[in-house]
Structures are given as C-alpha cells and as structure tokens.
Design a binder for these strands. Structure first.
Lengths: 140, 140
DNA sequence: AACAAATATATAAAAAAAATATATTAGTAA
DNA sequence: TTACTAATATATTTTTTTTATATATTTGTT
C-alpha cells in the first residue's frame, strides 16, 4: 500500500508548475534541479501527465511545460491515477476477469471501499488548495 | 498503492481460521490446498501474524493453527498491518527522519490523511463481519 | 522413542520499480 | 532557412522488492 516515486515525484512536479502558473513555460531541467529528480526519469513521468490532459508543452527555444488548466481545476487524484493507474488496492476490481471468485468475494468488496476512500480523499485536494496549505504551514 | 500477496493471502488464511473457530487447530497443509497458496510461503506469513498476537499454534501430532481471539475481536486492519506494515502510503509519516522537508510538507499531510482513511475502513471490518458478509453474498 | 508439525534461516527466482542512455522529432528565433 | 533548444520516443540497464523454495532445527504429542 505504498505510493511509488512516480506518484510522489509527479505531485511535486505539478505543484512546481502550479506555483508558476501563467508565467510562461518552465524547463524540465530547472524543475529537476529544484526538486532533485533525474531529468531522464522525470521526462518519462511527464508523458502520462500529458496524455491525461493535465499539462501542455511548447517546444523549441523558450519552450517548456505548463499546466493545461488552472490549479484550482486539477485534482491530486488525477495526477496520481495518471502516473500510477487505479487507486484500487487489488487488480480484480478494475479487471474482474483475472480472478474466478471475483463475483462473490467479500474481500474484494472491502478493498473496493478502501480504493473509493482513497479516491475521495485525493479528489478533495486541488493544486490550488495544496499551495494554500503549503503557505499556511511555512508561514507559521 | 497496491496490496501485495502477503496481505491478500493472510486475509484469506485468517478467514479460513475464523470459519473453523473453536473446532480445534487446523493444519497449514489443509489451508494451502483449499486456498491454493504455497505451504512454504504461507508458513512465512504466519510468523508476523503470531507475533502480532492474532493467532496461536499447537505443535506436535494433531497440532495446527487457530485464532488467538474470537472472530469478532480481530480487525482486518490488524491483519494487514501485521504482514505489510503501516498503511500510510509514504515512509516519512512513520519515520520523519528520512526526509528533511518532513516538517512543513503539504503532501505529507495529505498522504497521512489517506493512510488514516485506509486504517479506519479496515478497522471497521472484523473477521466475523466478513464471514457474515460472505454468507449474504453467496446466499443470494 | 518415534513421529508430526511448527519455527527459523538462508537462498534463489521472478517481477516490478527506478534510473539511464540514445536517437529522433519538432518548434523558435535569429 | 539554418542552427539551436528542448520535447518525445524507445530501448536498455540497474536496483529493489516480492514471491517462492529449500534445508535444518526445535518442540510437543501419543
């Protein structure tokens, strides 16, 4: 039940983009430095984020990455599921065919409830909320 | 954010023990067969379950495994944390020292909330409840 | 005393996660 | 239009974790 670096790094990346929202594209290279993530690794994580429609890019000189939508419209749940897939703790919820007992399985129902709770929690937080929270915390 | 086989197998194992509660010890060998889990692998999972005080054993002829407490007093959360460790999705919640930014980290606070929700959900379900649910489902 | 089964430890195999390297494509601005 | 910069795509390697197996030992029962 642990989050992998894919989810963790992507979240930090997206927060960084949110901080610079509407200030032009940012280079991956810069985010790598400030967040101490390998450039090559981050450039892999960025692909599913783009496919999910969370970020946009502009190429060429003065290019870079930026949010596809304002920070208040991007949920943490979208970021995590984009790079890690479903939040359900077991495969059979999303792919019932992989387990024959799937139909009347108690544990499956419970795991599904857990997955739903996770999704709800992460859906509550948008990038904007997270930045505001951050300010509150460091302001203290 | 996936559960490993450790958690899944252990849960099935514990449900099996609950079904035979108060009917004497059960052999690991039998549970392996009915649940289709490797004997050697299961005998590893059984160790943390015993350390956590969830099961007891009797050795020698006619020995085997049985629940340390009645099914209504054993929570699913206890089973999972015994074999998988903390439900928190990131290490830094349980071991703040591994990350220097741990003190004022927004995401940490959010991951902690997720972990708490998981714990709450799994704490709600006892082995007894799960068996009852099972009956309802298959009875239909 | 012989047997049956739990316990412990070590090791191996397989799978997944994390990271790196290389080559290609595309857009910008001079 | 050319040179540059950076995104994109693909392949490969390394590392870590998970899963599984094997062997030896201890303990208790009949």
């Amino acid at each position: 039940m642990k989050l992998s670096t894919r989810g963790r790094y992507s979240t930090r990346f997206m927060i960084e983009l949110a901080l610079y929202y509407n200030k032009g594209p940012i280079l991956l290279k810069e985010i790598c430095k400030s967040q101490q993530i390998s450039l090559k690794y981050l450039s892999q994580l960025v692909i599913p984020l783009k496919i999910a429609g969370l970020i946009k890019t502009s190429r060429g000189a003065h290019g870079g990455y930026f949010l596809a939508r304002p920070p208040e419209e991007i949920k943490l749940s979208e970021i995590i599921t984009a790079v890690e897939g479903s939040l359900n703790p077991v495969e059979c919820i999303d792919n019932p065919e992989i387990c024959e007992r799937s139909d009347n399985c108690v544990t499956k129902a419970i795991w599904a409830e857990v997955g739903k709770k996770c999704l709800e929690t992460l859906s509550f937080y948008t990038l904007k909320k997270m930045i505001e929270l951050q300010k509150e915390m460091s302001g203290k």
